[in-house]
Write a protein that binds this DNA or RNA. Structure first.
Lengths: 66, 66
DNA sequence: AATAAATGTCATATATATTTGACACAATGA
DNA sequence: TCATTGTGTCAAATATATATGACATTTATT
């Protein structure tokens, strides 16, 4: 239940393009977008930077959002 | 360069106590505090919840902090 | 000073994130 | 309709996060 896909589409780039910019495999992006696994912090930080946002916006849901 | 240790000390709990509450090994906490590796997102989320804070406060440093 | 608690660290084992290559199918555009 | 691009997914291999047990050292606490 993260917001990676939304932010990626907002940037109008493909999974492959996003993967290339971050330096991971396309499958990694795909699996993260579909909540199939559990990325490392370093990868989350790269995603946030490349997508022009921050950790909370991508991965922190619910009530206690600041 | 995360802020786990600061928030843990603020809560006045040991690495062992924090590890127990989160359900990981004490070494895992120790290595994260000392930037020896790269926790999973799920673990980061647990840390944020148990420490009463959020992802950005623990792991998002620098300029673009919101 | 002595005892206990907290921390740093090592070595080995296991679970799982991530990679690579490939294929099928959907969507898009020529 | 054909070609292209994007996406979902599978299987096998590799890298690395995490666990377990142990020990040394530092930091309270008495």
């Amino acid at each position: 239940m993260n917001h990676v896909r939304e932010y990626r589409k907002q940037k109008k780039i493909s999974q492959m393009e996003l993967a290339k910019r971050i330096g991971v495999a396309r499958q990694t992006i795909n699996l993260i977008e579909n909540d199939k696994y559990n990325p490392s912090l370093e990868l989350c930080l790269s995603l946030a930077h490349v997508l022009g946002t921050d950790l909370n916006s991508l991965f922190w849901d619910g009530d206690e959002q600041q």
